[in-house]
Simulated scan of single mutants.
Amino acid sequence: MKSWLFLGIAIVAEVVATSGLKASEGFTRLWPSLLVIAGYAIAFYFLSITLKEIPVGLAYAIWAGLGIVLVTFIGWLIYGQTLDAASVIGMALIITGVAVINLFSKATVH
C-alpha cells in the first residue's frame, strides 16, 4: 500500500513541477525555477521507490495518465487555458484507461 502512496506523491510533485514551468518563464524567475527543480527531484525520488514494488510499465502508465489530466486541469484553473469537447473526452478516456489497468490487469500489485 505504501508504494501506491509513494506513486501518488510522485505524481503530485511532478504536476506541481510541470505547472511551475510556465511560471518560471524559461528558468528566468528564481522561486518558480526552484519549485520546478525541487518538484522534479521529489517526483523522481518517490517514483524510484515506487518501482521497487510496482512494475515500471504500470507505474508509468498511471503517472503519465494522471499527470496529463491534472496538469490540464491546472492549466485551465490557473492559466485560463480552454478545454474543448475533444480534450475533455480524451482525458475521460485516459482516466478510464488508468481505471481499467488498476481494476482488471493482472500486472497490478494490490
Rank of each mutant, 00 (worst) to 15 (best):
K2T: 13
L5C: 04
F6G: 06
L7D: 11
G8M: 02
I11K: 03
I11F: 04
V12D: 02
A13M: 00
A13W: 01
E14D: 12
V15C: 05
V15R: 01
V16L: 05
V16A: 12
V16T: 13
V16S: 04
V16K: 00
T18K: 09
T18V: 10
S19D: 05
G20L: 04
L21F: 07
L21K: 02
S24H: 08
E25R: 08
E25L: 01
E25T: 01
G26E: 05
G26M: 02
F27L: 05
F27N: 10
F27I: 06
T28E: 03
T28Q: 12
T28Y: 00
R29K: 15
R29Y: 01
R29M: 06
R29F: 04
W31V: 08
P32S: 07
P32K: 03
L35T: 14
L35C: 10
I37T: 15
I37K: 07
I37R: 01
A38H: 09
G39Y: 07
G39H: 05
Y40H: 06
Y40C: 05
A41S: 14
A41F: 10
I42A: 13
I42W: 06
A43R: 03
F44S: 08
F44R: 11
Y45T: 10
Y45G: 01
F46S: 08
F46D: 05
L47V: 10
S48A: 13
S48W: 10
I49C: 08
L51D: 12
K52P: 09
E53K: 15
E53W: 03
E53D: 15
I54L: 02
I54W: 08
I54Y: 14
I54S: 07
I54K: 11
P55N: 14
P55E: 14
P55R: 15
V56E: 08
G57M: 09
L58N: 07
Y60Q: 07
I62F: 04
I62M: 06
L66M: 09
I68G: 01
L70H: 00
V71F: 03
V71R: 02
V71M: 03
T72D: 09
I74A: 12
I74D: 05
G75W: 11
G75R: 04
G75A: 04
W76T: 07
W76H: 12
L77W: 15
L77F: 15
L77D: 01
I78F: 15
I78K: 15
Y79S: 06
G80C: 05
G80A: 07
Q81G: 01
T82F: 02
A85I: 12
A85H: 12
A85Q: 12
A86M: 13
S87W: 04
S87E: 13
V88K: 04
I89N: 07
I89A: 14
G90K: 10
G90Y: 14
G90E: 04
M91P: 00
A92S: 15
A92W: 12
L93R: 08
I94W: 06
I94Y: 13
I95A: 13
I95H: 08
T96N: 00
G97F: 07
V98E: 06
A99Y: 14
V100D: 00
I101N: 00
I101S: 02
I101D: 00
N102K: 06
L103H: 09
S105M: 04
S105Y: 01
H110F: 05
